[in-house]
Nucleic acid binder design. Structure first.
Length: 575
RNA sequence: GCACCGGUGGUCUAGUGGUAUGACAAGGGCCUUCCAAGCCCUUAACACGGGUUCGAAUCCCGUCCGGUGCACCA
């Protein structure tokens, strides 16, 4: 695999050749926003296409598209309105920002100050005489302000209805869950995917494209019964590098390579379903050009888990920014559906029939109020309630002719007939179950960047250094380049003809007739075009063209009519 | 957000107060029978705003962007 490149060179190439552009650069730009140029868009689309092929096509996890602006209620229920914001204290002396809740936790016995109102946090900071960790000044006049990572907006005129730009695509799937469960005819498990943009108003994003304020996610929400697990056997032999909590907490702990099957067997990954998606992710990353030596799956430490996650494994790639998170496979349990059920009052459970109906005996009382009313007057209502309770809890009390209950310290005796006591059989055929959610969620921008870095290579051809982007053909921005050997003697027309033929066959091709042939090969090496088709004088004679391979620079001749097949075999066969 | 350093054509770069150097790239032409060859021509920059000065890429202030450290990062 290729050497680790200089970040400068990669970023420079990405900008110069049309992969990535800083957004609104002519107005000075704003950090955290990047545009995709033509090649970047093509690469990203190819990566998304391959992701869809994996989940939507091969697994049947159908895709939906939901709005990027969400009503306030959605994010109150999801916990983002509270949990996604931090109270920041700024030192009046040096201006440095700190998490106010962390300062409070460090200097008092309070164990969880997250979620305390900012006024209270400021009070505690002042009362405890907490010093600024940076300059030592006392923080008794520190301003404590809520900083929510969600972008806010207003829906409609005025300020009555608040909306948020979604901080993750997931909630769109959860709030549509009732309709989705009907679509899937109420049968678990099923998966729903979504690809789209999400927004986080990061405090101070740096690291170029690695931390964005507007970014793209591809997410799968896999809904299952608590006991359902996906069988890992299709990926049991996939080798993965794992970095579990235990190894991270051990000073000598290191990530280790194992197979998905062994990881489940050894209990390293507790959830078989999570392990399955780790395996699928590993396969997918390798197929789009992530270097397996620079890929690992790291388990979240307990204190870094999101408010909704009970366990989480992050796919991480090693880049010049260090190890960066490119996806998370989180066990969200029933957190989201439970919260939306609670806040909306809607039923979010899925009816699950038991394998066999459960029959049990139930004891009930249906007191005859026309008897109790005249006999006990105002106390009748309370007596009836007490009888119902007693029928459920102590059915044996109804075995005689009379039954006694106590209401407000007063004992009453009622004839068993008037109590309307009954034993009956109840058949329970199933129950509403809140599905458990396993969420593999991919950060597309970081993946695109990682693919570029991992593909970037420099080698030497005929004593000349060249830059070559060794991206897998299936995600390369172009399938092939088409060149006339020289721009005269009618070679251009032949080349144009071939270009057109390839386009009509659905191939992404680029024609280039400018400069010497060697220069054009280098240009396309640099942007990762896997094949070049060169029209030369023999083409006029015998109808063959030269194909030239990006990685090896090998050349071979094929008939004009076989170009399409030949390109397809390279692109689909991955070289 | 703080501190320090930096920002000159697409890219890299020279330039310590007098309107910007060079290379590569790009476009046009000539040439060219397979890996950045050559010749001619062309396009193209002082991050933005303000100040000092007769005059600012150069000095000062603010902003933006980048790097590094601190802080933040579900």
């Amino acid at each position: 695999m290729s050497e680790i490149p200089e970040r400068q060179e990669v970023v420079e190439l990405a900008k110069r050749r049309g992969y990535l552009y800083p957004s609104f650069e002519i107005y000075g730009g704003v950090s955290g926003f990047w545009d995709y140029g033509p090649l970047g868009t093509s690469l990203k689309n190819a990566i998304v296409g391959s992701w869809r092929d994996m989940y939507v096509v091969r697994h049947g996890y159908e895709e939906i598209e939901t709005t990027t602006i969400g009503k306030e209620d959605v994010y109150e229920a999801s916990g983002h309105a509270d949990g996604f914001s931090d109270a920041l204290a700024s030192c009046p002396e040096c201006g440095t920002f700190f998490r106010a809740d962390h300062l409070v936790e460090d200097h008092t016995d309070i164990e969880n100050a997250d979620g305390m109102p900012k006024e209270r946090l400021a009070e505690i900071l002042a009362d405890e005489g907490v010093p600024c960790p940076s300059c030592g000044a006392t923080l008794d006049n520190a301003r404590v302000e809520e900083f929510n990572l969600m972008f806010e907006t207003n829906i409609g005129p005025g300020t009555a209805r608040k909306g948020y730009l979604r901080p993750e695509t997931a909630q769109g799937i959860f709030v549509d869950f009732q309709r989705l469960k009907r679509y899937y005819r109420e049968s678990l498990p099923f998966g729903v995917t979504q690809v789209g943009r999400a927004y986080r108003n990061e405090i101070n994003p740096r690291q170029g494209i690695v931390r964005l304020r507007e970014f793209q996610q591809a997410e799968l929400e896999y809904f299952k019964r608590p006991d359902d697990e996906i069988d890992v056997s299709p990926v049991e032999d996939v080798e993965v590098r794992l970095y579990p909590v235990e190894e991270q907490e051990d000073d000598d702990g290191e990530p280790f390579v194992t197979t998905v099957g062994e990881a489940v067997e050894d209990g390293v990954i507790e959830s078989e379903t999570i392990a399955y998606f780790v395996g699928r992710s590993q396969e997918w990353y390798e197929s789009i050009g992530i270097d397996p030596d620079r890929l690992r799956f790291r388990q979240h430490l307990p204190d870094e888990r999101a408010h909704y996650a009970s366990d989480c494994w992050d796919g991480e790639t090693l880049t010049t920014f260090g190890w960066i998170e490119v996806n998370g496979i989180a066990d969200r349990a029933d957190y989201d559906l439970r919260k939306h059920a609670e806040y909306s009052g809607e039923e979010m459970g899925v009816w699950q029939e038991y394998d066999e109906a459960v029959v049990r005996e139930e004891t009930v009382a249906d007191p005859d109020m026309s008897v109790l009313g005249p006999e006990f007057g105002g106390a009748a209502g309370g007596i009836a309630d007490a009888l119902r309770e007693k029928a459920r809890d102590e059915p044996e009390a109804f075995e005689g002719d009379e039954v006694s209950v106590t209401v407000d310290g007063e004992a009453y005796t009622v004839s068993t007939d008037a109590a309307g006591f009954e034993r009956r059989e109840v058949r329970e055929t199933g129950e509403n179950v809140l599905p458990q959610v396993i969420e593999p969620s991919y950060g597309l921008d970081r993946i695109v960047y990682s693919v570029i870095e991992h593909s970037y290579d420099e080698d030497v051809i005929d004593d000349e250094e060249r830059t070559v982007l060794r991206v897998p053909p299936k995600v390369a921005p172009f399938d092939a380049a088409v060149f006339p050997l020289v721009s005269k003697d009618g070679l251009e027309e032949h080349a144009r003809e071939i270009e057109e033929k390839l386009r009509q066959a659905g191939m992404r091709v680029k024609y280039d007739g400018s400069g010497a042939i060697g220069r054009r090969y280098r240009r396309h090496d640099e942007i990762g075009t896997p094949l070049a088709v060169t029209v030369d004088y023999d083409t006029k004679e015998d109808g063959t063209v030269t194909l030239r391979d990006r990685d090896t620079t090998d050349q071979w001749r094929v008939e004009k009519d076989e170009i399409i097949e030949e390109i397809e075999s390279v692109v689909e066969g991955d070289g």
